[in-house]
Structures are given as C-alpha cells and as structure tokens.
C-alpha cells in the first residue's frame, strides 16, 4: 500500500498522540506514588491532558480536513509548549528527590522508581514533540 504525504503526516501526528498519552499516564503514575505525590500535581495533569487533547485535535482535523490550518498549527504549537511545561514542572519539584538519589538517598527504591518513570515520560514527551515538529515541517496533502 502506498503511503502518501498526508498519510505520513497523519501517522506522525498519530504517533505523537500515542506517545504523549503514554507519557501522561506514566507521569501521572509517578506523580501519585504513595507518599510522593506532587504539590503541583494538578497543574502537571492539566498541562499534559490539555496537550494530549490538542494533539488529538491536530490528528482529527488532519484526518477529517486533510490539511493543516491555523487551528491545528496553534494546537500543535501549544501542545509542544504544554508538554515541556508538564514534565518541566514535575522535574522542578523533584529536584530535591532526584538530587538525593545520586548522593545521600541512593537506597530510596520508591524514589528511583519515580525517577525512572519521570525520565521515561520526559523521553516520550520529547519524542512526541519532535514528531509534531517534523510533521509541522511537512507540506500537507493538498499543498
């Protein structure tokens, strides 16, 4: 089956959606680890859920209308911004914890679990952002 340019853009955005969704789930689990819930957990969830919804809008409109327009562009840009803000906010609040893991608190198994989950979420979010950026450089199907 031949995959046209529109398909590729859709695939990229779709994959970005999946990655962002998985990242949001992973980060939420990390943020709600018993006894380690984030002070700013509500904000982080809000940023990440909105980002996922915005990517979904990008994907849906791309699938329905076949082209990128100012709405999808704005949604994609905002999603990228919010994903970075989501994991950035989480990391900021975790600096004490993560710093301790590499020095005095290296036996904190729950802390390491949060660290690895946070790193995984960051990687997934960044991958999602990169896919959105790549797709944004692509001409849409009708161009």
């Amino acid at each position: 089956m031949e995959i046209n340019k529109k398909d590729i853009t859709l695939w990229l955005n779709g994959l970005a959606f999946v990655l962002a969704l998985v990242a949001t789930i992973v980060l939420s689990i990390a943020n709600n680890t018993r006894g380690f819930s984030l002070v700013s957990g509500g904000e982080v969830v809000a940023y990440s859920v909105i980002a996922v919804v915005l990517i979904a809008v990008v994907v849906a409109m791309g699938a329905l209308k076949g082209e990128q327009n100012p709405i999808t562009t704005l949604a994609g840009v905002a999603a990228i911004f919010l994903m970075v803000f989501a994991f950035g906010t989480a990391i900021l609040e975790r600096i004490d914890l993560f710093g301790g893991l590499f020095s005095w608190d290296n036996l904190n198994s729950a802390g390491w679990g949060i660290f690895y989950m946070t790193v995984a979420a960051v990687v997934l979010y960044l991958a999602s952002a990169v896919l959105l950026i790549v797709s944004s450089f692509r001409e849409n199907a009708k161009a």
Binding site: Q68, T73, I80, F81, I133, S136, F137, R138
Partner: peptide, 12 residues
C-alpha cells in the same frame, strides 16, 4: 510549512 515548523521549534 517552514513558518509552522519554526514556530513549533521556537515554542519548545
């Protein structure tokens, strides 16, 4: 598309 892509990068 160029401006779109650059907007995405700069927002990040």
């Amino acid at each position: 598309t160029l401006w779109h892509g650059l907007t995405s990068i700069s927002s990040l």
